[in-house]
């Protein structure tokens, strides 16, 4: 496997489904982290558990990334938080109560399809069955993550 050096402070997101790292890169807005941050994406790495997987390493101040959305994308991702070159926390991912501007409403009758500058917001209405509904029209989100 390709080696990328360890990080001093930031995150290692492991066990990402192969091919999904770019989606996560976009949804976590990693392109906008700032010029002092480094992101490495390892794609299609060998994995005993998964066969193939992606990994993302993010060198940045830990308060700069909102990881809540990861729980929605795939709660099987392992999220290691690094401080002073060591793993200080393995964060358990949970479903976010609200998702903003990651997915959009497919209901053609929804106001979010026409109103300018309106945030696309989905609310977790049934945690047990992982059901999200559009905040405006309450349409269930059925698309792929």
């Amino acid at each position: 496997m390709l080696n990328i050096s360890g990080i001093h402070q930031g995150f290692v997101l492991d066990h990402i489904k192969a091919g999904e790292s770019m989606t996560i890169y976009n949804n976590l807005h990693l392109a906008n982290l700032g010029s002092d941050c480094t992101v490495a994406m390892i794609m299609n790495a060998k994995s005993n558990k998964m066969g193939r997987k992606d990994i993302i390493k993010i060198e940045c101040p830990i308060e700069r990334v909102d990881l809540d959305i990861l729980g929605f994308i795939d709660h099987n991702i392992t999220c290691n938080i690094i401080k002073d070159d060591a793993i200080v926390e393995k964060r358990q991912l949970s479903l976010p109560k609200e998702i903003k501007n990651v997915i959009s409403c497919k209901n053609p009758r929804c106001i979010s399809t026409v109103e300018q500058e309106l945030d696309q917001i989905f609310i977790l209405t049934d945690p047990e069955n992982e059901v999200y509904r559009c905040k405006y029209c309450e349409e269930k989100y059925t698309g792929s993550k």
């Binding site: 209901n107 009758r109 979010s112 559009c134 905040k135 405006y136 029209c137 309450e138 349409e139």
Partner: peptide
């Protein structure tokens, strides 16, 4: 006719908004 439009209005409104029917919602 668009579902959720009164809710959008209520978020920006300085006065009470009553939903008098929003699409099939």
């Amino acid at each position: 006719p668009k579902e959720g439009a009164p809710l959008v209005a209520s978020q920006r409104s300085l006065i009470p908004v009553i939903n008098a029917g929003d699409g099939g919602h």
